[in-house]
């Protein structure tokens, strides 16, 4: 079996806990190549935690994750990441170009400096998100949408096969939103797999061909038209009470 026969992403029984509080329980999923998957769920459902746990950014307390049939460490160069925009300090003394260049660092490895080829790639990626004219700017002089484009360009510069994006549509202008959609479609057409954490339910149905509905545990996962129904939504959003009582019951059972 060639390595690429393995699915880009395979998650088995993933459990994550912060301090004493469990955040994700027993998540199981497989992402096929070329899928554009939206991760939806209410606030605090563990959407960001899921992708962070998959990439080893937060430690996992149970289960395992395989990327292209390998543990994360061995597949790291095939993974691209767009973190939440608020997660960084935009006053940091770097230019737009420097930030996008960070996308190349993972590939370069230790001790190697970026060369001309890397600089060309960075410029191409900036051009793709129409940010090339801003390459020399300090990052604090950008609008929210422009900041998001910079992060997208950085992910593109990673030249990966599997992308994780954490709320890329949050707080961006309509033009950037359209540009992101265009980019996602293009990536998908090239056979890349993309997981996007998304907050807005109405657009989720429109944008993604697969939906992963999450509320601390997996509510539903599959093609959008199958998953996106009232019953599942009720379970994920309206059914918060149910989940709480269920957990409480189980805790009682364990205590006895």
């Amino acid at each position: 079996m060639s390595p690429d026969a393995a699915p880009p992403l395979e998650v088995h029984d993933l459990t994550v806990a912060y301090h004493k509080r469990p955040v994700l329980y027993g998540i199981d999923m497989v992402a096929p190549a070329g899928a554009l998957i939206g991760v939806v769920g209410p606030n605090g459902a563990g959407k960001s935690t899921l992708i962070k746990a998959i990439m080893g950014v937060v430690p996992i307390s149970g289960g395992w994750v395989k990327l292209f049939g390998k543990p994360f460490r061995q597949a790291v160069n095939r993974v691209g990441y767009v973190p939440q925009r608020e997660s960084v300090d935009w006053d940091f003394p770097v230019s737009v170009f420097d930030v996008v260049m960070m996308g190349r660092y993972g590939r370069l490895g230790l001790f190697k400096r970026p060369g001309k080829a890397d600089r060309d790639i960075v410029r191409d990626c900036l051009d793709k998100v129409k940010m090339l004219p801003y390459a020399g700017r300090q990052i604090s002089n950008l609008s929210g949408g422009q900041q998001q484009r910079v992060f997208l360009a950085r992910a593109l510069a990673q030249e990966s096969d599997l992308y994780f994006m954490d709320e890329p549509f949050a707080g961006v202008d309509a033009a950037t939103e359209a540009a992101i959609i265009e980019l996602l479609t293009e990536l998908k057409a090239r056979g890349k797999t993309i997981l996007v954490v998304h907050h807005d339910l109405p657009t989720a149905q429109k944008y993604f061909d697969r939906i992963l509905m999450l509320n601390m545990r997996l509510v539903a996962y599959g093609p959008t038209e199958e998953v996106f129904n009232m019953e599942n939504l009720q379970k994920a959003y309206g059914g918060r009470l149910n989940i709480l009582t269920e957990v409480a019951e189980r805790e009682k059972a364990v205590a006895e």
């Binding site: 080893g56 950014v57 460490r73 790291v76 990441y81 973190p83 960070m102």
Partner: peptide
């Protein structure tokens, strides 16, 4: 000098740095 790019990336964006294998 040796770890400039790693130090830069981890300082700017720890999550991204970890996701790219640093």
């Amino acid at each position: 000098a040796l770890f400039y790019k790693e130090l830069l990336t981890t300082s700017f964006d720890v999550g991204f740095a970890r996701s790219s294998g640093m």
